[in-house]
Amino acid sequence: MISLWHYLAVAAALFGIGLVGFLTRRNLITMFLCAEMMLQAVAINFAAFARFHGNLQGQVFVMFLIAVAACEAGLALALFLMLYRRGKSLDSSDWQTLRELGVPPAIDTQSFPAPAPVEPDPVLSPAGARPALSTEEAARV
């Protein structure tokens, strides 16, 4: 028998995962999705309360929650679009100009590892011409 507590526990875990994502990920769109996930956790709570209280108030709340989430999505995407136009990036850390005067900006110190060397595409000689051979190949022939 699944009780109210099970649903509340799962919702809490989902909320926690969303919170971690919101706090650590730097892509604005991912952050936004994580926030939506937290909203979903809250919606589960409401629906569970509705179920175990035997009335529909919780479900009504979820309806409004969905409406608010839709508003949020529209506005957030518009804002992201504008930010992207300004900074050509979706990194939330690009906008830290509202800090106190004299506080040094947060700069990423760890550098990316050098990209793995990419094998260049072989260049074929024009049809009918003999391809140039390396010395090894020439030796084998």
């Binding site: 919101f22 706090l23 730097r26 850390s93 830290q96 800090r99 004299g102 900006p105 947060a106």
Partner: peptide
Amino acid sequence: LRPMQNGLVQFYALSMA
């Protein structure tokens, strides 16, 4: 406390959480 205001939105959210 001034350095706390470092302009990073996520840092603010983190402090809140």
